[in-house]
Amino acid sequence: MIFRIFLWSSLIREMNNLTISTRAKLVVALIIVVSIIGVLIETAITKASTYYITVHELYSEGAAGMHHDTAVSGDIVGASVRWDPKTRLLSFSIKDDTSSQTLLVRFRGDKPDSLTNNWPVIAFGQLNSGGQFEATKLLVKCPSKYSAKDEQRTYTAK
């Protein structure tokens, strides 16, 4: 019995000697925290990233570019902006700077304050068979000549 107690106590003493150093514990803890953050970023980025194409690229996809979620970027054609507050329907054309092709975008929702000519916009939505882009979300840069304060705002269809 006494022998057994001695054995146990010496074993515990050995365990105590073998405990990993503070440094190692800290390193392990920090690695765990860093990997959690890494996983958080990774999942969020795969879930929330969208890729966008230009008007020209959308047209060159042909029929393959229709009826699925896409994001298109282009510059607003100022003269084409129409907004009907009653139906809350906004329509405007966008064009690329590399080609002369334009795309008609229709969007139901708030009209951004800043639909000025030549202003860049990204529209999220689908190209329908009529060749119109039905947008569900717009990303518009706010107009500002103050380069220090270029804002961009998201408008979501409701």
Binding site: I37, L40, I41, T43, A44, I45, K47, A48, S49, T50, Y51, Y52, I53, A71, S73, I122, L139, T154
Partner: peptide, 18 residues
């Protein structure tokens, strides 16, 4: 070669828990 972008949902999903 694809232009990808993220907006608020990404930033919120990471930064709010942190």
């Amino acid at each position: 070669g694809h232009k990808m972008m993220v907006d608020s949902p990404f930033y919120n999903a990471v930064n709010l828990p942190l």
